[in-house]
Design a protein around this nucleic acid. Structure first.
Lengths: 355, 355
DNA sequence: TTGTACGCGTTATCAG
DNA sequence: CTGATAACGCGTACAA
């Protein structure tokens, strides 16, 4: 007898195949009513809602996603497309995306897409509707052909840190980022206020247009201070430590080398520091340096270096929320949002005014 | 007429709802036969196989995963469980897991599980069969209660870098890692050969038992060289940069401070260096330092520091392959594999014998 | 406001 | 060796 009870409890707790029908029986209503309550549909009486919710809670019922997918022709998953190798940028965004997906019972698909890799795989995945919505990280968020393919497949997209003008696209594409021009300008003013006049700028690769905007902002700050643009040396990197080293090698061996270098991301800034130290320079006595993104690296480094923090987690959160809401109620217009960046001053930038 | 052709081609290329039935019709066979060929079942004639494969290729047919899941009661996905924040350890493993999943048409679910976070979510997910197999990263790979829950739900598990003795578990659990004892020993010998006699060791938290094995290996090397164990200072960190700083603060202010510090991972090593430099010490003149894991960080740092590379990508590959094969043919025994580690000597460890 | 019957694309059972 | 048919669990159309 007590054995029977135990067994019942066991069955209840191991919610093996608890289905709509189980719940319906428990609540003494029809399957469809349970479905209605579950999906928050209108035209359901309070009483019904209560009964059903009670049964759901009691049985610890969780809807079967596979059945939903099959029936609804949706995958209930988002895809995060990034260019490997995985960096702190990716993991930062993930911190925002994952909780939102979890809340909405959506899955997240990670889709690394190498710069030189064939795109046939991702195109097939898009066409096969493996995901309902896509988040594109830079530099992929600049890739019009990719965006095109996704939109053509009738899926939602959010561009992260992209310079693509979504108003010109007649598609419902959304995007989130910071004001790169302003960030570059702030940094420029920061340098200039501290007496710097010769500035080096190492951008990301050419496709990475948001980084170019930062360069424009920097120029604008220099113009404000009537500093001739000859004093600006521009290089292109590829977002890696190695490219930071390479750029620094040329940049720092110039006759009149810059007093401060603004690197397009924190990995490149680390590369510049490595190179500078190898050349016998001291940071910040002989050279000031700033990175970008706000990676933990910048804080752990010796010396810790100045950087501009992009709200990565917030990007992820915004993107996931946006996608989810667009999926929940389609035919929304594309929107864009500009989130605040944060200058993180550190001693890697010397104040030349103070002796 | 040409319009008709174009339309047909269009329909064929946009493999909208190409289903088993479409393929069956194209090949002039039954649905079930197509299914048989697809799943590589036995008792299918050559001719049939050819016909079907031809049709599949022509229509670019891809099976509908949702339907498979529903029918087969499997999720066709693996879960990667890790303790946030995401580190280079995670992304390294991902590089191995993702390609394997892609090859097998499996999805990967990322499951961050904070140390203090409630486990109800992950337990529910396990019970609801959201994944067919689980990969546990350290320190979660030591968590017997978690392993237990997964096994009880009849799912496959692979433990990465775990000290759990899978033979004592009477479960089909597999694991992969390096020989931590040997790694600690190699490092010990490396230090001793270069004249170091006072050694500091910063382990990971107590639960992280593989790290403890490294400490044992270190001791063993010291005993080989008849160095009294008093010369060893042991601290526990928590795998973070901050804990590296904290440990270093005590360790380096000792009267007879160590000549070399072995930190349990690269982030902690960075913390030790920061602290040492802040105290006015020079690396490696005043203090030698080694990390563990082989994170890119160790190479980018100034100065780059010695580390021991764990084959992270290979861990991921091994784990995914193992899981996939265990799922393909169940009731396999748990196995374990020890992969080679690599000492990466760098100038952060000084040779005290020279000069 | 609630319930019934059907179909989403597969795989499994069983008969041919 | 091959084919018809049922079921997996849910949402949609429609009737009540």
């Amino acid at each position: 007898m007590s054995g029977g009870t135990a067994l019942t409890e066991l069955n209840a707790s191991t919610n093996r195949n608890t289905t709509l029908e189980t719940v319906a029986r428990e609540a003494g209503v029809s399957i469809k009513s349970v479905s209605r309550v579950l999906n928050g549909e209108a035209f359901v009486s309070e009483k019904m809602r209560d009964k059903v919710n009670h049964a759901i809670a009691k049985l610890e019922f969780k809807p079967n996603m596979a059945a939903r997918q099959l029936r609804g022709q949706r995958s209930y998953s988002l895809a995060l497309v990034y260019e490997p190798p995985a960096s702190e940028f990716l993991t930062g965004v993930l911190e925002g995306v994952l909780p939102e997906c979890r809340k909405a019972s959506y899955k997240l698909l990670l889709e690394p897409l190498g710069a030189t890799e064939s795109r046939s795989h991702i195109l097939r995945m898009i066409q096969s509707r493996a995901a309902d919505g896509y988040i594109l990280l830079p530099p992929l968020s600049e890739d019009k052909s990719l965006i095109d393919a996704i939109v053509k497949a009738n899926c939602a997209v959010v561009l992260v840190a992209s310079s693509v003008d979504i108003d010109q696209l007649n598609y419902p594409v959304s995007k989130v980022g910071i004001d790169d021009f302003a960030a570059g300008r702030s940094l420029g003013h920061y340098f200039i206020e501290r007496g710097h006049r010769r500035i080096g700028y190492i951008g990301l690769r050419a496709q990475h247009l948001t980084a170019n905007r930062r360069g424009e902002g920097l120029k604008s700050a220099m113009q404000d201070a009537s500093i001739p643009l000859d004093n600006l040396s521009i290089f292109d990197g590829t977002a890696t430590f190695e490219s930071g080293v390479a750029a620094a090698q040329t940049l720092l061996s110039k006759e009149r080398r810059p007093t401060v270098v603004f690197a397009g991301n924190d990995y490149m800034a680390a590369g510049v520091i490595s190179c500078a130290v190898a050349m016998g320079l001291t940071i910040p006595e002989d050279l000031s340096i700033t990175g970008f993104d706000g990676a933990d690296l910048s804080e752990m480094f010796v010396p810790p270096f100045m950087t501009v923090k992009q709200p990565l987690k917030e990007y992820g959160e915004w993107a996931a929320k946006r996608l989810l809401s667009a999926l929940a109620n389609p035919k929304q217009e594309g929107i864009q949002d500009t989130l605040p960046f944060t200058l993180i001053p550190r001693n890697s930038v010397k104040n030349l005014n103070q002796k």
